[in-house]
Every structure is written in C-alpha cells, then in structure tokens.
Simulated assay, not measured.
Amino acid sequence: MSATPGAPPSRRLLAGAHTRAASAWVAGTGVAAIGVAALLSPATIDDGPVLCPFRAVTGLPCPGCGLTRSWVQLVHGDPAASFAAHPFGAVLMALVLALAAVVLLAAMRRRPLPDFEGLVRRPWLVVLLGGWLVFGVLRLVSEL
C-alpha cells in the first residue's frame, strides 16, 4: 500500500480504499471514453478541434496525441487506421477493457476492487509505459 509502514491501521485502510476507488474511476472513465469514440464518426474525426493542450500551445504532438482518432477508428472496425493514428491505441483500449472487467467482476462478487497503485507498478506495465514515452519523444523529435 502507499501508506507509510508506521502509519496507524485506519490511515493504511484509507490509503488502500483510495487506490481501489482509483481503479474503478479509471475503468469507468475509460469505458465512457470508448462510448464517446463509438459515437464519433471516423469520417469527420480528423477535421475536429485540437483537444490536446500541449499541441494547441506548441503545435507539436504529445505522447497521447492521436489516441482519440485511434479509438474511434478501432471501435468502428478499422484496426489499420487505428494503428496509423496511434500505435498504442489498441493496447490502451484493451487495458481499459481488462481493468473494467476486473472491477466489474470484483464488484459482482463483493470482493475488494483491485489496488490501482499496485497495478501500475507491474514491471510489464512500466515497460509498456516506457515504450509509449519513447514513441512520444521520437515522434516529437521528428516533428522539430
């Protein structure tokens, strides 16, 4: 857990509840974003406004630029266009759906929700996040 070892048990429980609530919030927000992607049209997604504050200010892409287009293309059945928009889009969507399934199953079985802090510290996820950031830096440098 994220609480310090000498913290009273109630504080440790509160910290655990906080990271468990985070997993439900991330799963719910992610599923809502997938729902929004399903409502958007792939034909008009490239003509929409710039949603990324970094890109709006600098004109350069951040590591997440293209994820909205990627998810829209993916939910509308075009994995090639999804990959072209952002190569990590399908991976992120799969992770969101997997987290949502785990949270839903835990809630249905009346078990504790997964500890989000523990999930994001898994070595394979750290490597994936590192790859995503390397991709973002390389794309940014290629735009300069």
Rank of each mutant, 00 (worst) to 15 (best):
45 I>N: 01
90 A>V: 12
135 F>V: 09
75 V>F: 02
30 G>Q: 09
136 G>M: 02
81 A>R: 12
137 V>E: 05
93 M>I: 13
86 H>F: 07
134 V>S: 12
25 W>T: 03
143 E>D: 12
113 L>V: 07
114 P>E: 03
66 G>Y: 03
60 L>R: 11
104 L>T: 13
110 R>L: 14
10 S>C: 14
94 A>T: 15
85 A>I: 00
70 S>W: 01
60 L>I: 06
16 G>P: 07
26 V>L: 11
49 P>H: 11
117 E>P: 00
67 L>G: 01
133 L>F: 13
100 A>G: 02
84 A>K: 10
67 L>D: 04
16 G>I: 02
34 I>K: 04
5 P>R: 15
28 G>F: 02
94 A>W: 07
4 T>V: 06
17 A>H: 09
92 L>D: 05
74 L>A: 07
1 M>V: 08
48 G>M: 13
17 A>I: 00
37 A>Y: 00
50 V>F: 02
36 V>C: 07
87 P>F: 01
14 L>A: 15
65 C>W: 03
49 P>D: 04
123 P>E: 03
56 A>L: 14
78 D>K: 11
72 V>N: 00
19 T>K: 04
54 F>T: 09
45 I>Q: 08
44 T>K: 09
92 L>H: 05
28 G>W: 06
108 M>C: 15
19 T>F: 06
89 G>S: 00
127 V>R: 11
109 R>M: 12
54 F>W: 15
61 P>L: 00
106 A>D: 09
20 R>H: 06
104 L>Y: 10
60 L>T: 10
128 L>M: 14
109 R>Y: 02
104 L>N: 06
31 V>T: 13
98 A>F: 09
47 D>E: 15
128 L>H: 04
106 A>R: 15
75 V>C: 04
17 A>D: 13
23 S>F: 03
